[in-house]
Amino acid sequence: MNIAIIGTTAHSILGFRVDLIKALVAKGHCVYAYAQDYQPQTIQQVEALGAVAINYPFNRTGLNPLIDLINTYRLIKLLKQYKIEQTFCYFTKPVIFGTLAAVFAGVKHRYAMLEGLGYTFTPQPDGTAFKAKLLKRIQVFLYQCTFPRLTRLILLNDDDKRDLVDHYRINVDVAILGAIGLNLDDYPYTPAPIQPVRFLFIGRLLKEKGIYQYIQAAKQIKQKYPEVEFVVLGPIDQENPGGLSEAELKRLIGDQIIIWPGFVNNVAEWIKKSSIFVLPSYYREGFPRSTQEAMAIGRAIITTNAPGCRETVKEGINGFLVSPYSASEVVDKMEYFITHPHEIINMGNHSYQMAQQQFDAKRINDRLMALLDLK
C-alpha cells in the first residue's frame, strides 16, 4: 500500500516518525514522508529508512487562507501523483489541510493524530486574549469540517478527547494511544547523581512551558542552597512575546542562576548528568517526550497537574504534581528532594520501571499500526 505520512518539518519526521516508518517499510508498504523543508542530508536520512522524501508546499504558522487553499491544491496533486492510498497526518495544520487534500485526491483511508491541543487550548493565567479566542473558534470550525471525514482520529490522552471531540460534539471515531514512546535502547538507565543536586528543564523557553516558574524557583532555591544547579535545555523564540528574551537569558547565566549550554544534540547525556527533571508546563501537551526520556533514564519528575503532564507521574511514587503557574509549589518539591536525597534515587527507579512498562516504542508502534488498520 502507498502510505503518505504528512507532517511539518523534516526534523519532525526524523525526530518522531522514524520507528513508524521502519515498521511500515518492514510490512512491505511504500512510505512517502511529506515535509516542507527537506535538504539533501535529510532526504538521504529518510531514504536510508526505506521511505521516499517528498517536499510539499506548506505554511506552518501563517494565517492566510488563500495561501493555505493554494497549498492544499498543490498537495492534492502530489497525493494523486504518487497514487497514495492511505494518509496519516499529524500536527494541527497538516491534520486539517492534509485531510482535506486526501478527500479531494480520492484517498480512501484517512487517519490523523493530534499530540496535544496546542496553544489555542492552553489556559492563560491572565486570561485569554481576543486573538487567541478567535483562532480557537476558527480551529474548532476547521476540525468540525475535517474530522468527520477521517477514518480515525488518534489522540494521546483522555483530556483531549473530552475537551475537543466530546465538548464540540464532533462526529469522528477516536482512539487513545497514550505515549508515543521511545527506543529505550537510546536511553539506558543510569543512577541519578546527588552531589550536587542538579535540576533539569527541557523545552522551548516559553511561558506556557513553565520556564518562568522554573526560573523563579531556581532563584529562591539558590538563596538557600547555593550549591544546587539548574540546567535549561531548549531554544529561545525571539518572535514569541511569551518567550524568554536573549537579554534575560544572558542575565540569568551571568548571575549563575542557570546553566544553558545552547543547542545540544545529546539530550540523553544531559539527562544522565541531572538529578531531577522539572517541567512546570501548562501548555496543552499530548504526552511530553522530554518527560518520557527523563523517566527512561531513571529520573524523578516534578510536573504540573495538567493534561498530558499528569499522565507521567504517580504522586509520591516517581515524583510530584504541582499546580499550573505555581512557582512556590515547585520550590517546595525541589526542596523536598534536596533534603531527602535518597528519594531522588528511589523515585527515579520507579520512573525507570514505569518507562519500561509504558514507553517501549516497539510495543506502542504495534498498537499504532493496529489503530491505522495496518496489522
Rank of each mutant, 00 (worst) to 15 (best):
E246W: 12
T92C: 02
A132E: 11
K362Y: 10
A129Y: 09
V228N: 00
C89Y: 01
R310Y: 14
M334L: 03
T87G: 06
T304W: 06
V46R: 00
Y352L: 07
L182R: 11
T339N: 15
V330S: 00
P235K: 10
M113A: 14
Q86M: 14
Y212V: 07
P196D: 13
I302D: 02
F130R: 14
F201S: 09
R310D: 11
G118L: 03
K108P: 04
N64Y: 10
P307Q: 06
C145A: 15
V313Y: 05
I170R: 08
L63Y: 10
A112C: 10
K209C: 01
I13N: 01
G98A: 04
G178P: 14
E285G: 13
A112M: 05
E329A: 15
T339G: 05
Y214D: 01
K209V: 02
G7I: 11
T291R: 00
Y225E: 06
N59T: 14
R284V: 06
V172Q: 05
N240T: 00
P193K: 03
A247S: 15
L177Y: 07
I5Y: 11
S323I: 01
Q139E: 15
F121C: 09
R60H: 07
F199L: 08
A112R: 06
Y119H: 13
L368W: 02
Q358D: 12
R74N: 13
T151V: 09
D373V: 03
S351N: 06
D332I: 12
A102G: 06
I202W: 06
L321S: 03
N64S: 05
N2F: 13
F199G: 05
I170C: 05
L117E: 06
Y111K: 07
V232Q: 04
V228M: 07
P57E: 08
L164H: 14
V95P: 00
